[in-house]
Design a protein around this nucleic acid. Structure first.
Lengths: 230, 230
DNA sequence: GTTTTAAACGTAAATTTAACGTTTATAAAA
DNA sequence: TTTTATAAACGTTAAATTTACGTTTAAAAC
């Protein structure tokens, strides 16, 4: 070791958003801390970083442990480093945020780890500064929804326009005009319309779409900037 | 100590942007590393975090040491944590970015610490992942310039509209239409026009303005969102 | 006075946004 | 076999904003 300086505990906390298409609301994955102080309190999922582990790999490890998921939206958000933020010791925590498609399977996996999905709007009291983290993440979610195609991370591969609109209603916390929403999203030309119709919510049925991620990535590299501010 | 987990070195790196109103370009403060590995290479200003020091206080300490400045724009930007990012040892580095008003005084203070201001577009080779940090910060600067009143952090308290426009030209990397820029910035009603004129660049002279930070903060709390996308 | 020119002010077409109204496809009821 | 009901799909228009320019003005220098 070349450097001679104080070393600190470094942790990852992972703010996982899920969208419940049946209940039409956003959820956050929490678990009950197993270690003191505050054992039993609700907290974001997380763990300490290993000596030889990249931060991003630590985040992936935490996420997979609690959800069984790999290769989903997972980005770094912020780092919390007040010296006294954790009475258990000096811990610097790097917050990641993740977006996943909620289904019954993930509920089960979460349950196995003492984790549970909570409505974003009905959260229990949280340990340490984790409520701040969620507040920040919720802001980030809204902000990013306007400028990046993150909505598709929260829905299944195939979705209808009414479903997509409902999701954005939930994210923005307001009822978007469906005609204007449809116009805006279709004008991007980033949705692929399939032949299929989903008749689960109407007699007429709603056409099923897919997001053209490849086209988006290409355009993004050309300097394109998505705008879903409706 | 309650927790029993690996501890890591934690550092602060500080990306300081300055605007040179005479040269009309953006500059970045760099210094020559004093410690091995890579002693003598150019790097962002930075230091290791102390055991009992808040991260934000560490950032303030670093910034003041190299610029003599307190109470300037200083925000956390991202954290770099690849296990092998520094051959000298496992170091997690939290990147902060800062905006300051460049003047001769700061050049002198910087010099005393072996630091120097470089054109953002003419940077030397940088140590470790510091070039990535600057790339990220430059993107953040452009992005934030569109949605937050950060331009005023880079100019003196009092400035003219032509000066302000030149700054945004430099940030956006393009020539903005001066008539549209004037319209947009004045329509926010966040500039206070003084009686003074600056005649250093024209016979007619340009009126001197001040940014109404108090009004902005108030509006911001009311949900107002600045838009300087020209 | 006249000239010069950065600064300040103005305008109009094109585009985008916002707020609505109308038509259509289909299952279920009459 | 029509009729009805309604979510989904499509359309319209006024208002606001953006974009791309042209014009006037203030003051020093000639």
């Amino acid at each position: 070791m070349t450097y001679n300086h104080p070393k600190l505990l470094v942790a990852i906390d992972c703010l996982v958003f899920g969208y419940d298409i049946k209940e039409n609301n956003l959820k956050v994955l929490l678990f009950q801390r197993k270690v003191d102080p505050f054992a039993g309190s609700w907290s974001l999922i997380g763990d300490f970083v290993n000596e030889d582990e990249n931060l991003s790999d630590g985040a992936k490890r935490v996420l997979e442990k609690f959800t069984g998921l790999k290769n989903v939206f997972l980005e770094q958000l912020a780092t919390y480093g007040k010296a006294d933020r954790d009475p258990g010791g000096r811990v610097v925590s790097i917050l990641y945020w993740s977006l996943i498609k909620l289904d019954d399977l993930h509920r089960d996996i979460a349950n196995e780890h003492g984790a549970k999905w909570f409505d974003l709007n009905k959260l229990p009291e949280l340990v340490l500064d984790h409520q701040d983290m969620i507040t920040l993440g919720a802001r980030q979610l809204i902000q990013n929804a306007k400028t990046r195609p993150i909505g598709f991370e929260l829905l299944a591969e195939e979705f209808t326009l009414p479903q997509l609109k409902q999701l954005y209603d939930a994210i923005y916390g307001k009822i978007i005009d469906d005609r204007n929403f449809r116009k805006k999203i279709l004008s991007t030309d980033l949705l692929i319309k399939t032949e299929k119709k989903d008749k689960s919510t109407s007699k007429k049925g709603a056409f099923v779409y897919r997001f053209d991620a490849e086209k988006y990535d290409y355009l993004r590299n050309q300097g394109y900037h998505l705008d879903l501010n409706v």
